[in-house]
Design a binder for these strands. Sequence first.
DNA 1: TGTACATCAGTGAACGCGCGTTCACTGATGTAC
DNA 2: TGTACATCAGTGAACGCGCGTTCACTGATGTAC
Lengths: 198, 198
Amino acid sequence: VEKTKYHHGDLGQALVDAAYELVREGGANELSLRAVCRKVGVTAAAAYHHFADREALLRAVAGKALGDLAAAVRDSLARIPATAHRRRLVGISRAYVNWALDEPHLFRLALGPQRRYPGEPVNSEPLSQLTDALDALLGDGTLSPDHRRGAGLAIWSATHGVASLLSDGPLQSSGGRAAELRMCDLVVETVIRGLLRD
Amino acid sequence: VEKTKYHHGDLGQALVDAAYELVREGGANELSLRAVCRKVGVTAAAAYHHFADREALLRAVAGKALGDLAAAVRDSLARIPATAHRRRLVGISRAYVNWALDEPHLFRLALGPQRRYPGEPVNSEPLSQLTDALDALLGDGTLSPDHRRGAGLAIWSATHGVASLLSDGPLQSSGGRAAELRMCDLVVETVIRGLLRD
DNA sequence: TGTACATCAGTGAACGCGCGTTCACTGATGTAC
DNA sequence: TGTACATCAGTGAACGCGCGTTCACTGATGTAC
C-alpha cells in the first residue's frame, strides 16, 4: 500500500488490523478509536466512513480474533494424524489453551462478554472442530453414543475453563507454560475418560 | 446511619457497597469513582481518604464479590446432607453456575482479569470448598487416590467453563435457567465419571 | 481519447462530556489537662 | 466538668485530559458521453 495516497486503499481493513494490535497489547477496554486512527495515520473522523462507531470496530476485531483462535486450532490439528482420534481431541484443547495464554487480551475479547447484535453471525468454527473430532471418536467405537450428545459442551467447558483460569483468572501465571499445559492435559483427559464406553 | 452527619460513620464501607451495586448493574468497566460518590452523596475527593485510587476501590469490590460467590456455594451446601458426597459436588457446581448467571458482571469482576498487587491476598474459599468435598469422596473410597491430585482443577475448570460460556460468553442466553443447569449437570457429571473410572 | 461531473473517502476544527486526581480549606470529633 | 487543640474526614473548586462523535469541507477517483 502506497503511503502518499490521499485515499487509503483499504482503510477499513487497516483500522481493524491496527485495532487488533492495540487490543493485543492493552486489552479492549483501553482501545480508543482515536488511538487506532493515529496508528494508521488518519483523522479520527475517517473511521466513520467504515464503522458506525467504536463498538462496530471492536466487533470486527473480535471476529478476527476468534478466527485466529480457530486457525491456531486448525494448524495444530494439521500436525496430528487423522486416525489418532484421541490425540486430536487433546490437541484441540492444547491449542486453545496455548492461544489463550499467548493472547490473553484477544482471548477475552473474542470469548468474553459478547458484543453481538440481536442479529448475530457467530463464528462456529471452534465448536465444529470439536464436533468433528468427537464424531471420529464415536465412529471408531471409542466414545459411548450415550455420551455423544453432551460431549462437545463437556470438553469445550473444561478447556475454556482452564484457559480462562490460567490466562487471566485466579490461577494466572501458574508455574510456566509446561506446567500449564500439563494442567490442560489433566483436565481434558479426565473429561475424555468420563466420555468413554464403559 | 444518620443522614445529617458531616462525618459519615463508615464511608469506606458505604463506597464499597455503592460500587458493588453499580458494578452489579453495569459492569466494572463503566464504574466511575465519581458515580460511586454521587450515589453515596459525597464529594468525589472524599473517596481518597479511604482508597488510594479507583483501582483500589475496584479491588475491594472484587473481594466482596468473590466472598458472595463463596457464600452462595456455602448456603447451597448447607441444604445437602453431609454424607451425600457426590450430590454435594454437583451442588457446588450448580451454585457456582447459578451465581454466575445471576450476576454476570460481578462474576467477571471477581473471576475475570485479576487486579491484585504483587503482594496478593487471594480468597481461596471456593477452591477449599471443592477440596473438602473431594476429600470426602476420597475418604469414603469412591474416588481413586490416583485421580485425587488433579480432581480439584478438573471440576473447577469444567464448572468455571460452563459458567463463563453461559453467563457472558458465546453460549449466552441458551434456553433458560433450567436448560442451563442441565448443561451444568451434564458437564460436571462427565468429569465425575472420569474421576471415578479406573 | 478527453472532458464534465457525481461519488467517495479523506481532512481539520470543533462540540460537549465526564472522568481521575489535586489542593487548600473547614467543620466535627475526641483527647489531655 | 470545661476548655484548647490536634487530628480526622469531609467540601468545593479547579486541573488537564482524551475521548466519541458531528460537521462542512475538499481532494481524488471513476464513469458517461
